[in-house]
Design a protein around this nucleic acid. Sequence first.
DNA 1: CAGCATCCTTTTTGATACTG
DNA 2: CAGTATCAAAAAGGATGCTG
Lengths: 139, 139
Amino acid sequence: MKPDHFEVTPQCTAVNEILSRVGDKWTVLVVSYLGNGAMRFNELRRTISGISQKMLTATLRGLERDGFVTRTVFPTIPPRVEYELTDLGRELLVPVRALGAWAVENHERVIAARNRFDAAHGAMEEPFRPAGHMSEAAE
Amino acid sequence: MKPDHFEVTPQCTAVNEILSRVGDKWTVLVVSYLGNGAMRFNELRRTISGISQKMLTATLRGLERDGFVTRTVFPTIPPRVEYELTDLGRELLVPVRALGAWAVENHERVIAARNRFDAAHGAMEEPFRPAGHMSEAAE
DNA sequence: CAGCATCCTTTTTGATACTG
DNA sequence: CAGTATCAAAAAGGATGCTG
């Protein structure tokens, strides 16, 4: 008996789709901010600050397409566009934050493991030293 | 004040690191299979089947580096290498599976939202598009 | 303000070919 | 069997210029 057998069927498609969205560079950040309430485009842009306009647009479009956020246009001048999480988006936030919490809690362990690995493997990383002189001791 | 304010500090780095790993194309698949017990390299390769050996190697290396899996070499002939989740890996599996479960449960809602979006936005591109529908498929 | 279009650079991924 | 090395293709991401 497998202790916790995880069905790896075409359902993986579903998991992979969600995970691909969640795992991209900006989605979680955007969704997290939006978790605090509706925000305008440039408000998000300024807050995240590292993101390019193109990526913010793409991220928001993707989230909108998948039903995680709504896009509301106020036909004023200048135009005002607000993004807000849908119910689906808020529900998604629950497991996503759980994972986020796990990440924060266990980050050190991962870093430690990484350093251990790099120390063990990276040390003997010298490509190939042609027999002879060691003029460029490229560090 | 804010109902559930999410600190977006350098901790985001932690979250992003984990999420980037989890969100890549194969990691969750590999970790999920490994959740059922240790597996050999080609066993994983055959089971996942869509993965190239390069990506499987890279995925396993990354997981090993971050302390999520162990790599055990049996110096037999032919060589036998087994991969198994560490405690950290098993712990990670918990929130990951929660997210996975959410994905499976809500997949239809996402698909529905996606179709709705495509119908509303994609249709406008083509002025006179007969009742043809596009599956999302392409990814 | 909120975007779209275009061009270009960086990463990722996949197909081979080869080794212990 | 379990990889490594290399090259080419594709995708992601960024910078910039231009609209309503």
